[in-house]
Design a protein around this nucleic acid. Structure first.
Length: 426
RNA sequence: GGAGAGGUGGCCGAGUGGUCGAAGGCGCAGCACUGGAAAUGCUGUAUAGGGGUGACUCUAUCGAGGGUUCGAAUCCCUCCCUCUCCGCCA
């Protein structure tokens, strides 16, 4: 959420920065609302001050022995009652404006960082670097073809259990996923992240705090009878973990790693990535999350991204880092690096992690501050996948496939999977 | 699900209509004492939003929302949450 003060004092700056994202909302009404709300609130406060004075005066008179039906007291009471009515009228308008203002502000995306390159769409994203050597032989299979041969997951019957875009992992497939999750958690744990296992049902306030609500309600699954949703990413419960808190600066940064299932409706992606593990309603993800001091968030962003890249490098998976242009940023992000892994069978780079700094955007929505000397200020939040587990499996299968139909696995996974090779059934 | 208890400042805890933003204690900070420290003493110590260059000042906040009243932490209503016991359950 953006700063109300900025909206009142410099709406042009906001408009100009939002334009970089390719959105041009008319900020005029919202800005006028903010100014009127502030002015009316000021008026209300002075009325209230007058009323408080009357209350004090009555108390003083009564304590001094003035009779309750003394004209002086009666007169003050009448004035108090008149004021009360006035305050009620103004107050109603103030609250109405406040609600509208909050709704409006919550629907505005974050401003792009000054470092974010301008651009309109993903075509304008900027490649920052590449790592590893992509396999590009002829005849490489896609991961779902490999998985089918090896009996790693089951699609049709999963539709019976739930609906399309769900999958059941089986045998070595299930074990590989479990091993990957454990490997990622261990790896990040060694790098200083605290492992967390948060609730994956989250309430509306939590979704609002990280930016999924109110604009993206149709992207999440909702539990009809409760104010609870299936979390679309661990970013939501991890942000909410510290909602309404003031954290001492010397505690920062707080760095968390969490594995959770993630649930997304994938509305509007009918027909895309219908096979395999790339796009599912339910998938596993290991998420990295930082709460940090505002002065340190740039360095934190680089470090978090490096930590995500560390998994790809440990697994020997070729990837590239893209910096998203202003027009391709997510709602809450000020600056984002996407990591794209090479899918050898598909012959393409595919997003496997998105590492964003949100500045104070989520911290304001969630009221998370740090104590900095004598004052408190909003801290900064950052998040990134480290990594999306299903897509990591897909990349491993495509990268490690052998002519004999087997798949070789990276050495680091042996302790987790029990083998360096997946073999086709006899 | 049934029965009961309770939600007050960083923490503990007093406070049942009138200068209560809130006693007292702990914690924390500064000062004094000390060779240094402990102990002790004194002083200070919430958050948010307005206004003022500033000293400062106004408003709100005692789980949330409404109500009664000139005036509510205190009375009334609704809701939420926590704890204890019982039941049920992985």
């Amino acid at each position: 959420m953006l700063d109300q003060r900025l909206l009142r004092e410099n709406p042009d700056l906001i408009a100009q920065q939002l334009a970089r994202r390719g959105t041009a909302p008319d900020l005029g009404p919202l800005c006028r609302m903010a100014v009127e709300q502030r002015d009316l609130e000021e008026h209300r406060n002075s009325l209230q001050a007058e009323g408080n004075g009357i209350g004090r005066d009555v108390g003083q008179l009564l304590r001094n022995g003035t009779a309750a039906d003394d004209p002086a007291v009666v007169d003050l009471r009448e004035r108090g009652n008149r004021l009360k009515q006035q305050i009620a009228d103004v107050d109603e308008r103030v609250k109405e404006l406040g609600r509208g203002l909050l709704d409006g502000l919550r629907s505005l995306p974050n401003l792009p960082s000054a470092a974010t390159p301008d651009g309109r769409s993903e075509a304008d994203n900027v490649e920052r670097h590449r790592w590893g050597t992509p396999r590009q032989e002829e005849g490489l299979l896609e991961h779902w073809q490999i998985a089918e041969r090896l009996g790693l997951f089951e699609n049709e019957r999963s539709v019976r259990i739930a609906q399309s875009r769900f999958v059941t992992l089986m045998g070595a497939g299930a074990r590989l996923e479990r091993g990957l999750i454990a490997f990622m958690l261990d790896h990040h744990g060694r790098n200083g992240y605290r492992e967390m296992a948060p609730p994956i049902l989250v309430n509306s306030a939590s979704l609002t705090g990280s930016g999924q609500l109110p604009k993206f309600a149709d992207e999440s699954f909702r539990c009809a009878d409760d104010d609870l949703w299936l979390t679309p990413t661990a970013e939501v419960p991890l942000t909410a973990f510290h909602r309404d808190e003031v954290i001492a600066a010397d505690q920062l940064p707080l760095r968390y790693v969490a594995h959770t299932p993630c649930f997304r409706r994938e509305a509007g992606s009918y027909g895309r990535d219908t096979r395999g593990l790339i796009r599912l309603h339910q998938f596993n993800k290991v998420e990295l999350y930082w709460f940090c001091h505002p002065d340190q968030s740039d360095a934190a962003h680089e470090q978090l991204t490096r930590d995500a890249e560390g998994i790809l490098e440990a697994l020997g998976l070729p990837y590239r880092r893209l910096e998203l242009c202003s027009g391709d940023l997510g709602f809450s992000a000020a600056r984002t690096f996407d990591l794209e892994v090479w899918l050898a069978g598909a012959g393409a780079y595919r997003e496997i992690s998105s590492c964003s700094t949100c500045g104070e955007f989520q911290a304001r929505r969630s009221a998370i501050r740090c104590r900095d000397g004598k004052t408190t200020r909003l801290l900064h939040t950052l998040n990134g996948s480290g990594l999306a587990v299903g897509r990591t499996m897909a990349a491993l299968l495509e990268h490690g496939q052998q002519p004999d139909g087997s798949v070789t696995l990276p050495e680091v996974l042996v302790p987790y999977v029990g083998s360096d090779r997946l073999l086709p059934p006899p």
